[in-house]
């Protein structure tokens, strides 16, 4: 079989709207027969965290950060007009109105279509997030060399 064309996305942001865009593009690529990889780094790691609880880690600072920065596909804020959750609730209402899937649904759909999820070990270490904090859909844990190896062969490469 001929090599598939590749798409590589970096999801740096941890907001619901940006995650929706990223998964939308990933799903579009996978549906067009591309091999798609999403690298989750910094706040983007929140998108692939479990929805329950917060992760334990070493030190007061990291524990505080993890308590405030819990993540989980269902708990992401909006990048604009979040308004302590009121704006997000309204946006979810609008989405429901037109049958638009939520982040966790798009995430499962991407997975079904074979999109690969890679979590960045550098930011995990810095922020004190353990592997156990993530959902089982994460395929692997890697760093910049893995991203470069994928990105240099990719026709589409986006930083979101």
């Amino acid at each position: 079989m001929a090599d598939k064309e590749k798409m590589t996305l970096i999801l740096f942001s941890g907001e619901m709207d940006k995650a929706l865009s990223a998964f939308n593009i990933a799903i579009g690529g996978a549906s067009a027969g591309m091999e798609v990889t999403i690298f989750f780094t910094f706040w983007g790691l929140n998108v692939i965290k479990k929805n329950e609880g917060s992760s334990k880690s070493k030190g007061v600072m990291r524990n505080m950060l993890n308590l405030m920065n819990r993540g989980g596909a269902k708990r992401l804020p909006l990048s604009k007009f979040h308004m302590a959750g009121v704006g997000k609730a309204m946006m979810l209402g609008l989405m429901k109105d037109i049958n638009f899937p939520q982040v966790d649904e798009l995430l499962s759909m991407a997975k079904e279509l074979g999109v690969k999820f890679i979590a960045c070990t550098n930011t995990m270490g810095m922020m004190g997030i353990s592997k156990e904090a993530f959902i089982p859909e994460v395929d692997s844990f890697a760093g910049v060399a893995t991203y470069i190896a994928d990105a240099r062969e990719s026709k589409i490469n986006l930083f979101i």
């Binding site: 939308n24 799903i27 579009g28 549906s31 067009a32 027969g33 037109i98 049958n99 638009f100 899937p101 759909m109 279509l113």
Partner: peptide
């Protein structure tokens, strides 16, 4: 009907 991007494409591909 009633589905927005990317759903029609995903359903078509499937």
């Amino acid at each position: 009907i009633g589905l927005y991007c990317p759903m029609p494409i995903v359903n078509t591909a499937k």
